[in-house]
């Protein structure tokens, strides 16, 4: 079966510095994949490359078999950024409508979908309020809604739990599991290792632009059941640095 994401020997350099140095990994369709690593490991660069935001790289990157530069690949992706900032003069309704039009979704279908999404994330009652009045948590919810507006096959989430209270995080976990059960692939990076442990099917740990470890959560933690993911992660990264 074709993987949702295939990365082979990816090298991204900013001047003399290599942000990614020969990264290779695969993400199976229909799985929740945790992309972990310390600050500066290259997680954001890898995500940007998948989204077609990095024009120059070497290696091979495929999203549903297509290059990220191909708009058809990006049509199948939903992206939730780390910092949820949108056009402050728009309302949530207008924001989702705008992004829906970027995807060329027909009007009638878009209208129905927007109503469902706003209800799903709990923003239906404030759909006509300007975004500049929103709290961080509300903005994060809108972020999730816009990531789902095109009913993507793959979701790429960068710190999805950032800014959410525990109740909202529980909602998020439920949504992610529901999406996985619908056959969607979820690729997310997070520092919240406890969250990653609760939702991920597979993980990969990145350090200094290189893949240190990847595999299913059970396999990776298999012999380390006495440790939680956070302790395992710290030990793995420190070992890689030596």
């Amino acid at each position: 079966m074709e993987n949702a994401i295939e990365i082979k020997n990816l090298v991204v350099a900013y001047g003399p510095k290599r942000a990614l140095d020969g990264l290779s990994l695969s993400v199976e369709k229909g799985k929740i994949f945790g992309f972990l690593g310390p600050n500066g490991a290259g997680k954001s660069t890898a995500i940007k490359t998948l989204l077609g935001l990095v024009p120059f790289y070497s290696g091979d990157v495929r999203v549903h078999g297509l290059s990220p530069a191909d708009p058809r690949a990006r049509a199948r992706i939903g992206f939730l950024p780390e910092e949820a900032t949108y056009y402050r003069f728009l309302t949530p309704l207008e924001t989702l409508k705008f992004y829906g039009e970027i995807f060329s979704i027909p009007k009638a279908e878009l209208k129905t979908r927007i109503e469902k999404l706003l209800t799903l994330v709990g923003l239906f009652d404030v759909r006509n309020k300007p975004i500049r009045t929103f709290s961080k948590g509300m903005a994060q919810k809108l972020s999730l809604a816009q990531a789902l507006v095109n009913d993507p096959q793959t979701l790429i989430l960068d710190e999805p739990a950032s800014g959410l209270d525990p109740l909202a995080r529980a909602d998020l976990r439920r949504i992610l599991h529901d999406l996985r059960n619908q056959g969607k692939t979820i690729f997310f990076s997070s520092h919240e290792l406890s969250e990653a442990e609760l939702v991920c099917d597979s993980i990969a740990i990145l350090e200094a632009g290189r893949l240190v470890l990847s595999g299913s959560l059970k396999e990776v933690l298999g012999d380390h059941r006495d440790k939680n993911l956070e302790r395992f992660f710290i030990e793995t990264v420190e070992a890689a640095r030596k």
């Binding site: 989204l51 935001l53 049509a75 992706i77 056009y87 970027i102």
Partner: peptide, 11 residues
């Protein structure tokens, strides 16, 4: 405002 990344990640 970091909206460019979100926008250009669309098709």
């Amino acid at each position: 405002n970091r909206t460019a990344a979100v926008l250009l990640s669309k098709p």
